[in-house]
């Protein structure tokens, strides 16, 4: 516990964290968090590539950052409303499935699914446990399904087989639920000619995609939180970088997201905590979290033009080491800000990032830490070899509504190795992005 703890101090008038360097790198064994909300619908959140996860694929830090940039490009593309049509079928070779196709835009309404955090849910009766990427930046929940008519990528768990579930039902083509897919995915749904079953398609900005039957199924979050008739994609043609997970849990704002589908039960309320390292655990809770303390600070939820599925925030300012950066409020207002569980590194308008990086470097320099080479999109890096612990400036965000949030020390740095520890922020291409 001591390894992962950090403390703030106020020496030299600068507010700093004291960080144990071992806490920046993942441990080899899983240490579950003892803090769990008092709620029946609470799922354990783990990092996809850490020792608390059973999934295999383990990209290196540069690959994670590369995938993260692809996701950010995808979000920006989605907000710009640009798309190009392409087609993917469930099975080109099997006559039975030849008409079961849907048109996929090459740059669709979906964002890349490289999110790092997964939860395990049960699907069907009897239930099949599936590890799904949890994503507040997308809407549709889908998993790979037998018989994988066209293609399934390797996943750790048993692939869901709807024919073995007594609670599975197809969604018909002429239903309102099928029509709703267009706004959730940006793709017009298809229709299976034989069975009139609705066919969904979703394609991500890195060209990963899933196409299959749109169905309803029993979703088991915990033994006491079971939801019937949850609409989900039962994927028959799935390709992409999903890291061995079984699919995606969409927590966006569209009517087909899990948040909206469970609105009557959980009142459009959910919360989560992402663990400080990939070797510890966090949680995702649907419904009111009775553990929410009075110290929680609230900021208004906003909506972004052309981005109704995203959760918008109003950033007003940033402080480094207790010093408020001189950034005009219009810099943040012109493009807006979203909060996203699937983007790794916070992206700021270039003007704001420049001010943040400059002040961070100034304060780190005053502590005497040597610089290191850049790591992919991260350009403010330090060689901390030889230190057991370091002092780093605190970083806090001021949001609309008077909420000021001091980031945890683990939310400031991204380390590939002790000799290359980087400020975990990056700039957008333009202040208008």
């Amino acid at each position: 516990k001591q390894t992962h703890e950090s403390t703030q101090s106020h020496r030299s008038q600068l507010r700093t964290y004291t960080v144990q360097l071992t806490s920046l790198l993942p441990a080899s064994s899983c240490s579950p968090s003892s803090i769990v909300p008092n709620n029946e619908a609470t799922l354990k959140v783990v990092h996809k590539h850490g020792p608390c996860s059973q999934l295999q694929a383990k990209p290196d830090h540069a690959q994670i950052l590369q995938q993260d940039q692809t996701r950010v490009n995808s979000i920006h593309s989605r907000l710009s409303g640009k798309s190009v049509a392409a087609t993917a079928a469930i099975d080109d070779d099997n006559p039975r499935y030849q008409e079961d196709s849907t048109t996929l835009p090459a740059k669709s309404g979906a964002v890349v699914s490289s999110g790092n955090y997964i939860v395990t849910v049960g699907l069907g009766t009897p239930k099949t446990d599936l590890s799904l990427i949890f994503d507040t930046g997308s809407d549709i929940t889908w998993t790979q399904c037998e018989p994988c008519a066209k293609s399934c990528y390797n996943q750790k768990e048993t692939i869901f087989d709807p024919s073995k579930s007594t609670s599975y039902a197809n969604v018909s083509c002429n239903s309102a639920d099928c029509s709703q897919l267009k706004s959730a995915t940006g793709i017009t749904p298809g229709c299976s000619s034989g069975t009139s079953t609705c066919i969904y398609g979703i394609q991500y900005g890195d060209q990963s995609f899933s196409v299959g039957y749109f169905g309803k199924e029993r979703l088991t979050l915990t033994s006491s939180a079971v939801i019937d008739n949850v609409l989900f994609g039962c994927g028959q043609n799935n390709q992409g970088l999903f890291g061995g997970s079984a699919g995606l849990l969409g927590l966006g704002r569209n009517k087909l997201s899990i948040v909206e589908q469970t609105a009557q039960k959980y009142n459009r309320y959910f919360s989560y905590c992402l663990p400080s390292t990939s070797s510890s655990t966090g949680y995702l809770t649907l419904g009111n979290d009775r553990r929410a303390s009075r110290s929680v600070k609230y900021t208004p939820l906003t909506t972004i033009p052309n981005g109704a599925s995203f959760y918008g925030l109003q950033v007003l300012g940033i402080s480094v080491g207790g010093k408020t950066l001189s950034i005009s409020a219009s810099i943040f207002q012109s493009a807006g800000t979203i909060i996203d569980s699937g983007t790794v590194i916070t992206r700021l308008p270039p003007t704001a990032y420049g001010a943040l990086s400059s002040e961070f470097q100034k304060q780190m320099s005053s502590f005497g830490y040597p610089k290191a080479s850049a790591l992919s999109i991260l350009d403010t890096c330090y060689d901390l070899s030889g230190y057991n612990s370091v002092r780093i400036p605190t970083i806090s965000f001021s949001f609309g509504g008077g909420a000021t949030v001091v980031l945890d020390s683990t939310g400031v740095l991204f380390a590939s190795k002790i000799s290359q520890v980087c400020l975990a922020f990056a700039a957008n291409g333009d202040d208008g992005d």
Partner: peptide, 30 residues
């Protein structure tokens, strides 16, 4: 847009009260 990413959300309790039109941040959430 700017994006508040998941590294910066670590250990924060992030609350989405969509009906209430607000997002909450609590420190030391896990």
């Amino acid at each position: 847009v700017a994006i508040f990413g998941n590294v910066q959300q670590k250990r924060l309790q992030v609350i989405y009260d969509i009906g209430g039109g607000k997002i909450g941040f609590g420190q030391g959430g896990c």
